[in-house]
């Protein structure tokens, strides 16, 4: 029979994907059965896994993706306000990643080519619904806007790297990734 769990207050964790591809979240799920152990230790607040829409007071905020539009900036600031520790997860959160490949192009030129001029793409005009967040002129990593406490590089960071960071933080250690876990690709 399992020993009863000690009554430790679970850490609250929020996660989000800004200008990312959800690949880092998929990599989090790649921790496989360790997720059961994780759920003994943490409970999720705002996250694509819970569908909670706004972040309450949290111990840990995982940010995937960089900043490509105004909504990304609002969400990031909400996380920074409510999370004691912010972790930038993955290449896009750390240096802009793939979305930042547009940074050497003019934003208007991109929108016009995609929505107006390129014949194989749509010709419906540049979307201007007020519900749509405005794109930023350039894509930025999140440390340019808020203070980031820890960085977890990778595209995506491997499940083992995510697990190492989580278990280090839960144990109160400074996260440290050795050879094979620290990867920029």
């Amino acid at each position: 029979m399992n020993a009863p769990m000690p009554l430790v207050k679970k850490l609250r964790v929020a996660t989000t994907s800004l200008a990312g591809c959800f690949g880092c979240h998929m990599s989090l799920l790649d921790i496989d059965e360790r997720i059961l152990k994780l759920l003994d230790l943490v409970e999720f607040d705002r996250s694509p896994l819970t569908d909670i829409k706004h972040c309450g007071p949290c111990d840990l905020g995982f940010i995937e993706g960089g900043l490509c539009n105004a909504e990304n900036v609002h969400v990031l600031r909400e996380f920074r306000t409510h999370c004691k520790i912010i972790v930038a997860v993955g290449a896009c959160a750390i240096n802009g990643g793939l979305p930042a490949q547009r940074n050497h192009l003019d934003l208007r030129d991109i929108l016009e080519e995609v929505y107006q001029t390129e014949h194989l793409l749509g010709r419906a005009g540049i979307p201007n619904d007020p519900e749509l967040p405005l794109p930023l002129n350039k894509v930025h990593p999140i440390h340019e806007v808020v203070k980031v406490d820890y960085f977890l590089p990778g595209c995506p960071p491997s499940a083992d790297a995510i697990w190492k960071l989580l278990t280090d933080l839960l144990a109160g250690r400074t996260p440290s990734l050795g050879h094979g876990l620290l990867h920029y690709d």
Partner: peptide, 21 residues
């Protein structure tokens, strides 16, 4: 990249320049 791993560089720290090259 290998040197940055060796020195445990976790982030670029500074603001990006994104030069056009």
């Amino acid at each position: 990249q290998a040197t940055a791993y060796e020195l445990k560089m976790m982030s670029p720290h500074f603001d990006m320049f994104y030069p056009d090259r």
